[in-house]
Every structure is written in structure tokens, then in C-alpha cells.
């Protein structure tokens, strides 16, 4: 794109802020601020994942906590076996746990992708409000399963004592861990931007608007949507693994439906189907949590009111309101 739209300028400013703010915090020796920024970047990544299903595919999934949780538990299970020196599986062949981030990411992405394939294949048989409720129900199914599954902490969750490692970096240093998360977010944003303009993305976008037309030219909307749902679940799963590594803790809360709702909030506050919508949304969410949470224990009331006002009156989210175009896609 040669001409810079206001949205592109806004996105570049956002990227710059995501680099400058942690650098400032690092120089000013404010590790807590770096941790906040890391959290925002990881949640943004989860939102970018959801946005592929929600914004591009029009699939209102209220069950993305399932993939977030699977990513988190992939990290927790592998790392807990590694820290206890117990093998994950002994028969038919030996699988050991691991503390290596790239391996954990790979496992998290594969597992959440497989789960998204199964959940998506069933849920996408339906549409509209059924789809919303079914994805919600699948999320709850995994939530209750993790609560009643005692092997990895059950309801209490599971702590990992030392953050997992990345070759060549010291992940215990907040700014280095931030760098890893930011690099992944940038990579996934680049991928998402390319995806939206690819033949697949265009067909998916068309299927969201008029499924019949796509079907008439010989493309199956079901397959398009299922692919989008799987890709979306994989990215959210990766975010889950990073989030677990940030906290060094996993618990069934990661699977809770409030988590699904919050990921959806990031996307909406920022602006649905905007590339940077989830990034802006996650940053605002974390800022509100930090600022309002310090003022009042009941900050969720303000969040609720803000969300209600955005849904009722500012339909393009923050990016839509700031850059002037009300609807992201036409």
C-alpha cells in the first residue's frame, strides 16, 4: 500500500508505542510496567487469533478460552514433567517433558489446532446463535474437565517454578521475555495482514457476506470457515502458552467463559476486523485494569459501562472512531 491511510498511520504509531513504552520502562527500571506491557501483548495475540474467526470469518466464537487454555496447559503439562523429572508417557514410547519454549509453542499450537478442528467441525454445522452457544458450551466442557481432572492440579491449578527457556536469551529478564512476545505478535500480525489479502482471506470475507455466492463459484464456505477457525484457535493457543509462561501458573480459569468474553472484548473495543483492533483493545483493557483497578475494587462496572457505550454508540470501536470509517469492511 503506497498511500498511507489514517488507519495505517495509526497502526504504525501503535507499533512504535509498543516498542518505546517497554524501552522507557526498562531504562527507568520499572519491571512491573514491562510485565504489564507483556501481558497486553500476549492478550493482543489471543485477540488477533480470535479476530481471524470473528472479524474475517464472521464466526462469533464464545469459546476461544478453550484454545487459550489448551495452549496454557500444553505449557504447564510439559514443563511440570520436566521440573519433576518424570516422563510424560512411557509406553508405547518415551516422551519427556520439556522446558524449551519453541517446543512448547509447537505443541501448544498443534494441540489447540486439533481441538479447534474437532470443535469447529461440529460447531460449524450450525450457524448464528446456535454457533455462539455451542462454542460456549465446548469451552465450558473443557473448563469442567480441567476442574475435575486431578493429575495437573485440578481446581487449584499448577505452578511452574522457573520460566521456560529460549535458546540464546534469558527469559527471566522481563525485557527479553517482552521481546520474544512482541516479536511473535509482530510475526502473527504480518501473517494476519497477508492472510486477509490472500485468495483464502478474500473468499472467507465473501463467505461471511454472502455464503451462497461463494458456494455458486464452487468454494465450500464450510471448509473456508473451518480453516479460519483452526488458524484462529492455533494463534489463541500460542497466546495461551505465552500467558502461562508469563504467570508461571496455569489454572482452569484460563478455560473459563469469562476469558472467552474478555478476549472478545479486546477485539470489540479496538474494532472488529481491524488488523490492530485486538492490539488497541488489549492495551486499553490492561491500562483500564491497572488504572481503574487501583481506584476501585469494582472496576468491572466501569468496564461494563464502557463496553455497553461502545457497542451501542461507537460501532467501529476505538480505531473506527479515531480513523473515521465506521465499518471496517464493505
Amino acid at each position: 500500500m503506497i498511500t498511507m491511510t489514517r488507519e495505517t498511520l495509526f497502526n504504525l504509531a501503535m507499533m512504535a508505542a509498543l516498542i518505546l513504552f517497554p524501552l522507557w520502562a526498562w531504562l527507568a527500571d520499572e519491571p512491573f510496567m514491562i510485565t504489564l506491557a507483556t501481558k497486553a501483548v500476549i492478550l493482543a495475540l489471543a485477540g488477533v487469533g480470535l479476530n481471524i474467526a470473528l472479524g474475517l470469518g464472521g464466526l462469533v466464537s464464545l469459546g476461544h478460552a478453550a484454545f487459550f487454555g489448551i495452549g496454557g496447559y500444553a505449557m504447564g503439562i510439559l514443563a511440570s514433567h520436566a521440573q519433576n523429572y518424570t516422563p510424560l508417557i512411557e509406553t508405547p514410547f518415551l516422551i519427556e517433558g520439556t522446558k524449551s519454549m519453541p517446543v512448547i509453542w509447537l505443541v501448544a499450537v498443534i494441540c489447540s489446532g486439533l481441538a479447534a478442528l474437532a470443535i469447529g467441525a461440529l460447531s460449524l454445522r450450525t450457524s448464528g446463535v446456535y454457533f455462539i452457544m455451542i462454542t460456549l458450551a465446548f469451552g465450558q466442557m473443557l473448563f469442567f474437565f480441567t476442574i475435575s481432572w486431578p493429575a495437573y492440579g485440578g481446581e487449584d491449578g499448577l505452578s511452574i517454578y522457573v520460566r521456560n527457556g529460549f535458546p540464546g536469551l534469558n527469559t527471566l529478564d522481563p525485557i527479553q521475555f517482552y521481546g520474544i512476545c512482541f516479536a511473535l505478535l509482530a510475526l502473527v500480525l504480518f501473517f494476519a495482514a497477508r492472510l486477509a489479502r490472500s485468495p483464502f482471506g478474500l473468499a472467507l470475507n465473501a463467505a461471511r457476506q454472502t455464503a451462497e455466492r461463494v458456494e455458486t463459484v464452487g468454494i465450500s464456505p464450510y471448509k473456508l470457515r473451518l480453516t479460519a477457525f483452526v488458524v484462529s484457535g492455533m494463534i489463541t493457543g500460542l497466546a495461551g502458552a505465552l500467558f502461562a509462561d508469563l504467570n508461571r501458573f496455569i489454572s482452569p480459569t484460563m478455560f473459563s467463559w469469562q476469558t472467552s468474553g474478555e478476549i472478545m472484548i479486546f477485539v470489540i473495543i479496538g474494532g472488529v476486523a481491524r488488523l490492530f483492533g485486538p492490539v488497541v483493545g488489549a492495551v486499553i483493557f490492561i491500562a483500564l485494569e491497572h488504572l481503574l483497578g487501583g481506584l476501585s475494587d469494582y472496576w468491572h462496572i466501569y468496564l461494563g459501562v464502557l463496553l455497553l457505550l461502545i457497542v451501542l454508540f461507537a460501532r467501529g470501536g476505538v480505531i473506527g472512531t479515531l480513523t473515521g470509517r465506521e465499518v471496517a469492511h464493505d
Binding site: L54, V60, L62, G128, V129, I132, G261, M264, I265, I268, V272, Y298, W299, H300, I301, L303, G304, V305, L307, L308, V311, L312, R315
Partner: peptide, 20 residues
């Protein structure tokens, strides 16, 4: 439906915290 889900999710936040 997306707007409905979000607006009513916002209502849950308001009602739950209000009751608390």
C-alpha cells in the same frame, strides 16, 4: 448477534459488580 452478546456481557459485568 455479536452486538447482543457483547452488550449483554457488559450487563453481566455491571450486574455482578453492582451486586458485589
Amino acid at each position: 448477534h455479536l452486538d447482543q452478546v457483547l452488550a449483554t456481557f457488559a450487563l453481566i459485568l455491571i450486574f455482578s459488580e453492582g451486586t458485589r
